[in-house]
Write a protein that binds this DNA or RNA. Sequence first.
DNA 1: ATTAAAAATCGACGTTTCATCGGATTTTTG
DNA 2: CAAAAATCCGATGAAACGTCGATTTTTAAT
Lengths: 243, 243
Amino acid sequence: MSVNVTATFEETETSHVGNLGKGLPDEAWADFLQVIASRPKRATERKQDRSKRTEQQILNAALRVFARDGISRARIADIAAEAGISTSTLYEYYKSKEDLAYDVPMSHLAAFFEEYRQAVADKSGARERLLLYLSMSADYAREHAEWARLLYLEIWPSVFVNDTDLRHSIDDFSRVLVHLVNQGIAEGIWPKRNPYQTAAILVGGLNQVIITWLLYRTPRNLTKAGSEIVERILRMMEAETTE
Amino acid sequence: MSVNVTATFEETETSHVGNLGKGLPDEAWADFLQVIASRPKRATERKQDRSKRTEQQILNAALRVFARDGISRARIADIAAEAGISTSTLYEYYKSKEDLAYDVPMSHLAAFFEEYRQAVADKSGARERLLLYLSMSADYAREHAEWARLLYLEIWPSVFVNDTDLRHSIDDFSRVLVHLVNQGIAEGIWPKRNPYQTAAILVGGLNQVIITWLLYRTPRNLTKAGSEIVERILRMMEAETTE
DNA sequence: ATTAAAAATCGACGTTTCATCGGATTTTTG
DNA sequence: CAAAAATCCGATGAAACGTCGATTTTTAAT
């Protein structure tokens, strides 16, 4: 996840940056996460139970095959076979291979946001929330390596994901981050600097580690390496002076 | 460019970290850059002048079409037509679409390394060299946006570039960076910390900005934004204490 | 329980694109 | 200038994508 830290993101945030510790902003924060966690839902709902099962089988099969062969080398016929259906049935569910590829990561993304929403419920400080957020995202990548490989190495950077529901969810990842950076500035624990730039350093550094791990399984312990790099950057930030 | 900061890279470097200011390491540095800048050369050299022209036309056409349509949507027939040759002629030069896609960025990559090699010739400090390196890479992406789009958003993250000449060159980008970080540590201007982690923060943050620019043309001035984020990270590093 | 409509499935088939091959054409060599 | 080498291309094969109409299964009303 996590690109375009510098772009978009207006309305949602500027509103409650600055008024801290009033109790109200935290409601907005909770709502914010709620919206994000429930956004990734497919437009077309299937009517029959059999269909829901089939859809799930397709998604599982697609994840396996895409992660193994890469999107462009993967064959629709293979995915259909793996899902135990015919090729033409698959096309009842997804109008093209690209469509399917972009839909596969969505459910996991929603699951990650939901996990975070629950884990962060009893944390209040920006530092704690942000550290948890980035640590969890590294850990989630480790636990769901096939998914992470598909998202980070194939889909995330693709220009063609623009104008897609998926792009919205990926952007959400950055929105949360910038929100937390702004919260920390408001709390006075971080210097008042360009929050997009700050977010870029955090997410860029972490993603670099995650991508390296996906490609080479180095460093061995992704969870530890992820936490370490984020903590180092946070300490660096806290030593910075306001410009 | 610039992935896997954490991986590979052994023999070349460890040798002359520590013995600084002896004059000799700088020879090694120059050789290092020399090798890197001349590495990206095609194995099969064309004999006739006509062929060399055709090859160049194919590469130009491929860059345009790949950048416009993306690798997977691009059609070989379109590239051939754009290059003014027949489809089958194109296959005389490249055995597959993938092959072509991976070869396109190589010449530019070599050109970047060569530009840097010349520009850095009269710089001696690690800080100056590193700042120049990363600033130039942001600037090169801005100047060659089609190429950058292809490399950063389609090829660089691809798992399937592994075991390719291209991957070697991409790794070279990181090697140079880690080398400079180690040089700075040896000079005593940066604290003695995990150089791979340091490099990951630098390249991760910068790439984040470059990728955002490629996707959204935000921030407007990539050159400025690139220098700023690198300078900020360097200042942060210089304020760090040795662990 | 029956049955008609809706939803889901599948095999057969058309289309597109990648890639190959043998021979024609151009360039180089002696 | 002729033979050899390099280059080019039209025709064709192969593979994967995607569509359509007929068939089966499920749902829901009587």
